[in-house]
Simulated scan of single mutants.
Amino acid sequence: MTFLTFRFAPSPNGELHLGHAYSALLNQQLASEVDAHLLLRIEDIDTTRCTPEFEAGIYRDLEWLGVDWEEPVRRQSEHFSAYQTALDRLIAENLVYPAFMSRGDIRAFISDRERRGRDWPRDPDGVPLYPAVDKTLPREERDIRIAQGAPFAWRLDVAAALARIGSDLFWTEFEDTTLSATRSIAARPQDWGDVILARRDIPTSYHLSVVLDDALQGVTHVVRGMDLFQATAVQRLLQELLGLPHPAYFHHRLIFGPDGRKLSKSLKDTGLTALRAAGATPQDIRRMVGL
């Protein structure tokens, strides 16, 4: 018997807002309609920005909304060793490389090329692709730099990874909230360039940790915002490289603020805590997000 599993996976680096409420409530609604499990995952790999206070606020807000989840809650910061094991495998297979360029180095390199009239490629979010000049460094020089303590990040060699796969990548996307119609989406991870899989100060990345967590937790349906639609291509590539199962996806509409921009913790949009303090009820929140 196959069990269906959904998950809601917020990061405790700020207060939940209406966009999070919509995603959590939609996950609960869809899971209930197909008699599936609903898991809560705390994605706290960024230990500098994520705090216990914000994590406690997540539980408080979800309980107030009436969202139920199954225990135990998986906290990513407790599983760095699992992510390291996967990274070590990719290192051993020469599918990642140490990238030594700082943000300043990257900006200077790209600015120089653009001054010479070259249009530098950008990822789907509009960020310039990593120059990847250190991908050509001899192994001996890489080892020397690492031994000398030079800071670096591990980046996925997307070209090598795609060559290893040797076939086109696709993922299954549900077309609407009924989860009754699907389409096949062609994945183009090369559009993101050589993405980071482990940072200088964080021993993993969102892409690496999320595919491992989804596989380890048996997640069959990923329901999340449209802002992550394009990123699915990188995750599908990692799933293939690591031999992981891949769930079906539904990328739901985003909730926008009065000024038309996407809600964001970093921009201090009105959070659920403030709305509750102002007298809003869970029913009010459901109406505000269109549920």
Score class of each variant (00 low, 15 high):
H251E: 10
P124K: 01
D123I: 03
N13T: 14
T5Y: 00
Q230S: 12
Q148H: 14
A248S: 14
G290L: 06
A160I: 09
E15K: 04
S184I: 07
E55D: 12
R74L: 14
G166M: 05
A92G: 08
D35V: 06
V34R: 13
R200T: 14
F109P: 01
R89M: 08
P124W: 01
L238E: 07
L4A: 14
A233K: 08
T220C: 01
I45Q: 07
L95K: 11
T270M: 12
V158G: 04
G166H: 05
Q190I: 10
D61N: 10
K265A: 06
R74E: 14
R188K: 14
R60L: 08
A160K: 15
A231W: 03
R164K: 15
D213T: 00
R49D: 04
N13C: 06
G243N: 06
L38N: 13
P189A: 11
P189F: 06
A86V: 03
L38H: 09
R199E: 10
R183C: 08
R113M: 10
A21Y: 08
A153P: 00
F229W: 15
A274M: 10
I165T: 12
A36C: 05
E173K: 07
S11D: 04
D134M: 02
A24P: 07
P189Y: 05
S205P: 00
G279F: 08
S81H: 15
R113C: 08
R60I: 03
K268M: 07
G66M: 06
A56F: 07
N27A: 09
A31E: 08
I58N: 05
H20V: 10
Q28R: 10
E63N: 06
S205T: 03
L129A: 03
H246V: 08
E55Y: 10
L87R: 11
A198M: 09
P282V: 11
A92M: 07
M226K: 13
P10Q: 09
S32H: 11
R253E: 11
S11H: 04
E141K: 11
H252F: 03
L38G: 06
T48W: 07
L254V: 02
D143G: 01
P128R: 03
E71P: 00
S205K: 02
